[in-house]
Amino acid sequence: MLRRLSLAAVTSLVALSAAVPAASAATGTLPLPLPLPLLDGDDGRTRLTITVSGTGDPAADGTFGLTCGPAGGSHPATGQACDRLTELADRGVDPFAPVPKDALCTQQFGGPATARVTGTWQGRDIDAVFDRTDGCAISRWNNLRPVLPGVR
């Protein structure tokens, strides 16, 4: 029985080996896959819209675009912001993650500044809101400087 199975497997393999070149000859050469572009930075996958208000600095409030790989957009510090995002990614830190619900945060008010960041970072969709309502929120904001502006 085992000999019969082995013979059937070898016969099938020989038949398939002969069929593949014959099929290729009949249809011509197969197309090669298209190469993916090589980009620097964080692979061009960062495209963010940052809307900031209440900072006390008219130059810091507004809506700014930020692209990385290469750095560009209307953000006032594109190069430094992209460098910071790359640094955080290299360290495995997600700066857009919310404060954990069980975090113990100091009860201090850092001012009325708010920010919303939407777009794409490291190939994933981002929709994050920032404020300065307690110590954890202030730390989260400060961790993302200069992507988010300083506050007066």
Rank of each mutant, 00 (worst) to 15 (best):
residue 1 M to V: 12
residue 3 R to D: 14
residue 4 R to L: 15
residue 4 R to P: 00
residue 6 S to Y: 04
residue 7 L to D: 11
residue 8 A to S: 11
residue 9 A to E: 10
residue 11 T to W: 03
residue 12 S to E: 11
residue 12 S to G: 14
residue 15 A to D: 12
residue 21 P to V: 13
residue 25 A to L: 14
residue 26 A to Q: 09
residue 27 T to K: 03
residue 29 T to V: 15
residue 30 L to F: 07
residue 31 P to L: 04
residue 33 P to R: 00
residue 35 P to I: 09
residue 38 L to Y: 06
residue 41 G to W: 02
residue 41 G to Y: 05
residue 45 R to E: 09
residue 46 T to C: 06
residue 48 L to A: 03
residue 48 L to E: 00
residue 49 T to W: 00
residue 50 I to R: 00
residue 51 T to R: 03
residue 51 T to I: 01
residue 53 S to P: 10
residue 55 T to Y: 07
residue 56 G to Y: 04
residue 57 D to W: 04
residue 59 A to M: 08
residue 60 A to C: 07
residue 60 A to R: 08
residue 63 T to E: 09
residue 64 F to I: 00
residue 65 G to I: 00
residue 65 G to S: 12
residue 66 L to W: 01
residue 66 L to N: 02
residue 68 C to M: 03
residue 71 A to K: 09
residue 73 G to L: 04
residue 73 G to C: 07
residue 74 S to L: 00
residue 74 S to M: 01
residue 77 A to W: 04
residue 78 T to W: 03
residue 78 T to N: 04
residue 80 Q to R: 14
residue 81 A to R: 02
residue 82 C to R: 04
residue 83 D to L: 11
residue 86 T to P: 01
residue 86 T to Q: 11
residue 87 E to A: 15
residue 89 A to S: 14
residue 92 G to A: 10
residue 92 G to V: 03
residue 93 V to C: 06
residue 97 A to Y: 08
residue 102 D to T: 12
residue 103 A to L: 05
residue 103 A to H: 07
residue 104 L to C: 10
residue 104 L to Q: 15
residue 106 T to S: 15
residue 106 T to M: 08
residue 107 Q to G: 12
residue 110 G to H: 12
residue 110 G to N: 09
residue 111 G to T: 03
residue 111 G to S: 09
residue 114 T to F: 05
residue 114 T to G: 12
residue 115 A to H: 10
residue 118 T to V: 15
residue 118 T to L: 05
residue 118 T to G: 11
residue 122 Q to M: 11
residue 123 G to Y: 04
residue 128 A to L: 02
residue 129 V to M: 09
residue 137 A to P: 06
residue 139 S to I: 02
residue 141 W to E: 05
residue 141 W to L: 02
residue 141 W to D: 02
residue 142 N to D: 08
residue 145 R to C: 04
residue 147 V to S: 00
residue 148 L to P: 10
residue 148 L to K: 11
residue 148 L to Q: 07
residue 151 V to Q: 04
residue 152 R to L: 13
